[in-house]
Design a protein around this nucleic acid. Structure first.
Lengths: 209, 209
DNA sequence: CAAATTTTTGACCGGTTGGACAAACGTTAG
DNA sequence: CTAACGTTTGTCCAACCGGTCAAAAATTTG
């Protein structure tokens, strides 16, 4: 099904990386339609026809970017495992997701842009791979609830709320910084967020006496 | 500072409303740059030059839409009051925000689009009006914590987490529906979400010991 | 070196987009 | 009726955008 491993020269590999890096920057802030090939080419330090020599269509860049993103994006949830203490597992999942929001905000915004516009390009993946993964992990969480390890609640919405709260710090970064102001909006905001979220979810999920 | 009350005929008022309604639909799904005047005009059932008779520039439509949005968008937070039981107050704030995500998803997505792109048009409002309001309400919440009515935590991040979790059901609606599937992704998803969020926040904020 | 291949660029093209404009059309008031 | 005013539309334009192409420049290969 996949393209049969296209042979690429060293220059091709490097330039393609350069373009993808530039495109991530441009797409994540302007969306797909709001971005122009010229913008990406300029950010990558090359001319438009030269860029089009490496990616024949604008959509190819976006598609490549999206494919790479999805692999790494779900990695934290895949790691959520049945071994170990449930509350500890959830806590480290939240921490990993928040670290991704901190370290890969552009990827988060690229994803958010796609979903906001109705996920026209990745809908099959949402209904397939993603749903399967979430259902699987929801079953794990349900097991923890049955065993009395965490409070009974809806596992799917629990996962949604973890996504929402962590990605918020990437997608709505400007708002967060504007509201916190120059004093508290600095680098420490992610640690404050980590502390808060840990408290919220751990106390909110601790099994009731 | 404001425009000196432009006189408008009845037709002008009606047509402007029609255009704003159509523009909300188009802008919220395609973003500003991703939307064309033609699309909006067609959605409003009129020709492009006719639309431009009521709004001289595309940006004017967006600006008007954004100004109206901001008023209603912060209303729920403004209602958060010091009277009444703190946990009840927070619970009804969450409920109101979730109802807005359910009833006004286009407004939510319009706002999300703007923030995602760095809030180029509303940054002053974020740093001014919004920050002032949030600081004010954070002080109220801090009072509740000092009084031992709710658990001690960061009020600003608490507000962020309420925004994030509730707006998620509007902004990421397609993902939510895709993951929940045809069975659970129906109309009941907002009630499930309300139940879950209430449990999460109320239990997570109940004062300890 | 020289031939072959890969990379880069300037010029160009067709389609789209935001917006201008004048003329036509409709409505209302005297 | 008619003049004034408000509304609608067809036509047009300049800028922009995604993408092509041939030729020049650089690099690799023999």
């Amino acid at each position: 099904m996949d393209t049969p491993a296209p042979r690429r020269t060293r220059i091709q590999q490097e330039k393609r990386e350069l373009i993808l890096e530039a495109a991530l920057e441009v797409f994540s802030t302007n969306g797909f339609r709001g971005s122009t090939i010229d913008q990406i080419a300029e950010a990558a330090g090359m001319s438009k026809p030269n860029l089009l020599y490496y990616f024949r269509r604008k959509e190819d860049i976006h598609e490549t970017l999206m494919q790479r993103l999805l692999d790494t994006w779900l990695a934290p949830l895949r790691e959520l495992d049945d071994i170990g203490d449930p509350l500890t597992e959830l806590r480290s999942y939240i921490r990993r997701k928040l670290e991704m929001a901190r370290d890969f905000p552009r990827e988060s915004r690229l994803f958010a842009n796609e979903i906001l516009q109705g996920a026209p390009r990745i809908m099959p993946m949402l209904e397939g791979e993603l749903k399967t993964l979430v259902d699987e992990k929801a079953a794990v969480i349900k097991g923890w609830m049955r065993a009395g390890k965490i409070a009974r609640t809806d596992p799917w919405h629990l996962i949604f709320s973890i996504w929402a709260t962590t990605q918020h710090y990437a997608d709505f970064d400007v708002q967060v910084r504007a509201v916190l102001g120059p004093d508290r909006g600095g680098d420490g905001r992610f640690e404050d967020a980590a502390r808060f979220l840990e408290q919220l979810f751990v106390d909110g999920l601790r099994p009731k006496g």
